[in-house]
Each structure stands twice: as C-alpha cells, then as structure tokens.
C-alpha cells in the first residue's frame, strides 16, 4: 500500500491530449499553468486567446476564475499540471463558491513535478484531485484515462452554460520536447486583451 514505482503514472500522452482538447476551439479562452502545460498548449498552436504562465505557481485556477467572471459569454479553460494545482488547491473552493458556468479545469496529472526532476507529487501518494473538485461544488468532475473521453470533455469546455467542470487527466510521466511560448508577460497580456477588444494603456 502506498508503494509507488517511478514507472507508474497515467496511460495517456500529454501532447495528444492537449492537441485534442484544443482542436476546433472556437471561442475558448485558455489559461495555462507554468511548466509543461504551457509548452503543451504552445505545441498545439500559439493563439492570441492563450494566456501562458511562467510563474505565480498555484494561480492558474484563480486567473481562470477571474477571467470567467469578467467574460461570462466566453468559455474558459484552465490547463495545468498536478503540481501547480496542488499548490493552489484552495482555489477549487474559491471557484466552487463562485460557481461560474463557463469555466473548465483540466489537470494533466503525471504524478510528478516535471520541471524539477520528476519528483513524485501527492497524486502519486494516494491523493485524489477529482474528488476534491466534487467536494468543492463542481458540477462535474471526472478522472480520464482513455483518449476517447477527451472529445466529450472538450465539448463541455466549449460551452458557456454547462457548469463548472473538472477533469483529472492521467498522463504518462514522460519528457517531451519543450515548445516555449513567450516569456514576456506584458506582451502576452496585451495580446490576450487585444483579442478581446481591449487596448493597452
């Protein structure tokens, strides 16, 4: 019990998952947690409606929440990793309390801190994330271990009234090519806002 080998993690390939999540994305606004989820989103195709984080670990969900409240007519997807999610677990409670209907959270869970040498996270030690989201007043919360479940979740993420949604997507602990988005936060912010029709100062 509690025994974890370095080989064990999820079955899915992160780049395939993210590419499928972001295909035909329509009006979707995307916030990515620092590290690999930012690279995965970039690898799927840079987009003005992506906001990539390179820091502020633990903030991806709260940024997505603020965005979803300010833009109720656009669907918002937070794409992050298990380590980043764990650093801001309280944000699930904050999102659940506000309960926007246009916000989805997808956690790419490889049970590792990928940026720092693949150290095991809590999810490798028996801690559930999807269960936390359920307890935090999310309308739906699923653990995805098969590629054919990504499409139905993608459809939900593109809705503005399907409710608050969470998916813990079990991916392999693999190192893939780093496809780096811009690290200029001001540029990415201004580009994102321009996409929504807001000009810089």
């Amino acid at each position: 019990m509690g025994e974890v080998t370095l080989q064990s993690s999820g079955p899915l390939e992160r780049r395939k998952v993210v590419s499928e999540l972001l295909q035909d994305r329509g009006d979707l606004l995307v916030v990515t947690g620092l590290g690999s989820p930012s690279y995965d989103a970039m690898a799927a195709g840079d987009n003005d409606a992506n906001f990539y984080l390179w820091g502020g670990m633990g903030s991806a969900v709260t940024i997505g929440l603020g965005l979803s409240l300010a833009q109720p007519k656009r669907p918002v997807l937070v794409l992050t990793g298990d380590g980043e999610m764990l650093m801001g677990l309280g944000a699930l409670a904050t999102a659940g309390a506000k309960h926007p209907r246009n916000l989805s959270i997808a956690v790419l869970d490889n049970e590792r801190y990928g940026e720092t040498g693949m150290q095991l996270t809590h999810t490798a030690h028996g801690v559930g994330l999807a269960e936390v989201a359920t307890a935090c007043n999310f309308d739906s919360s699923v653990v995805i271990t098969e590629m054919d479940k990504i499409g139905p979740f993608r459809q939900q993420t593109q809705s503005t009234d399907a409710g608050l949604r969470f998916a813990q997507i079990k991916i392999k602990a693999e190192n893939v090519e780093k496809v780096l988005p811009s690290r200029d936060g001001v540029h990415v912010k201004n580009r994102f806002r321009a996409h929504l029709g807001f000009s810089p100062l």
């Binding site: 929440l65 300010a70 309280g90 904050t94």
Partner: peptide, 19 residues
C-alpha cells in the same frame, strides 16, 4: 471570498485579462 489572500491577485489578473 478567497481561501487565502494570494488567490485574489490571480483573480484580479484574470478579471483584467477579461477587461
């Protein structure tokens, strides 16, 4: 309502991204 103060910084950044 936040569970911890730093959540508010993210929330306000998100709101600003949304105008």
């Amino acid at each position: 309502v936040l569970t911890t103060e730093e959540e508010g910084i993210g929330l306000l950044l998100g709101a600003w991204l949304g105008g």
